[in-house]
Design a protein around this nucleic acid. Sequence first.
DNA 1: TGGCGCATCAACCGATCGGCTGACATCCGG
DNA 2: CCGGATGTCAGCCGATCGGTTGATGCGCCA
Lengths: 210, 210
Amino acid sequence: MNTPAPVRLLLCDDHAVVRAGLHALLSSADGIEVVGEAGSGEEALALAARVRPDVVLMDLQLGDGMDGVTAIGKLTADGGPRVLVLTMFDTDADITRAVEAGATGYLLKAERPEELFTAIHSAASGRTALSAPVADCLMARMRNPHPTLSEREQEILGQLARGLGNRDIARALFISEATVKTHLGRIYGKLGVETRAGAVSVAKERRLLS
Amino acid sequence: MNTPAPVRLLLCDDHAVVRAGLHALLSSADGIEVVGEAGSGEEALALAARVRPDVVLMDLQLGDGMDGVTAIGKLTADGGPRVLVLTMFDTDADITRAVEAGATGYLLKAERPEELFTAIHSAASGRTALSAPVADCLMARMRNPHPTLSEREQEILGQLARGLGNRDIARALFISEATVKTHLGRIYGKLGVETRAGAVSVAKERRLLS
DNA sequence: TGGCGCATCAACCGATCGGCTGACATCCGG
DNA sequence: CCGGATGTCAGCCGATCGGTTGATGCGCCA
């Protein structure tokens, strides 16, 4: 009985303790070999180019520097490794962005560790790996599509969260005040709120803002 | 040369993967024995009563159910174990609340794992253990005291984040609209903003709201 | 070529907000 | 016992917001 080659895994998480924990946990798992640790998106890219892992296990929240989604895009661009997202949030926006960027799987840190092991092997062979709540979220989204904010609307929202008035938002984005009001009205509709404060609140909760 | 008794440690984190990682990491460390894992504040209390750990390593963000700060309070109430907070955020509000509730130490997950080991031993012998950024934060706070929101102001802020107007906030809290406006004015001053949207934004960032 | 989504702008109006001044009660600690 | 922090309330005013209707231009795709 021949042992298959272990999955070569690269860890990427900005929290050193969590990273070390994952390293310790996964090193003891069969068929998995941790070949590197990165604490940022930049580091992950550099390391991946050098050690050529089969799978990158990546958190989406990477603190300062390169965004997690950006890192996924660059990693998977030219026949790179599979990327398995391991993160804390099962938010619509996060999942969508990660999958669009090229993630092979999406797991939650709340999942049982066994799920993580099998997901890593799935990802290594190119199969999609979603944890149950994430799959639920995707199905729910397809049945009851949450309206998506356009790019411009997100910019408006960003200025809104800075506490700016309509006039200042208009100046900041080089448009007229009337346009700002139009956008805001649509944003309220899409987020299901009626005031600017409510919009900011929902936006922060759904993680629609950096 | 006699080996000192190992520190009996209880883990509490709502993310199973992180928990398992910490378990794997700490089990391999000298002088530490992990005697239990809890995924919620309630579980931590029950387990602590049974296994009598020396130290509880606890995350502040525990998802639904009991709040992390509440759990610390109950754990340390009657000569219980030392509690060492291990969390992701070095926010003023989080640190203050945890320390007031009785935490012996406060570490960040971004810290190096070695810091974690020494902090656990420090906590076991009753010494305070703060990671550098947390200590910085406390010092900065003492030099340049951020004004604290009163309890009532936090309630107002909570309603504000729901997108309510002044009249509705007044009704929700059984006070007059004028009072709401007074509170809001003070909140703006303390948070350094000028609008409700700005207040909600800052509040969410400083984690002043659940 | 004709929709469709998106972004842009205008004018209007009532409701709301934010700032201001001033006031009174309570509670707590020096 | 007095000051300070806190919570409560009032009235006034200009500025801002939110809703509405209606319109134009652009790119995309069937």
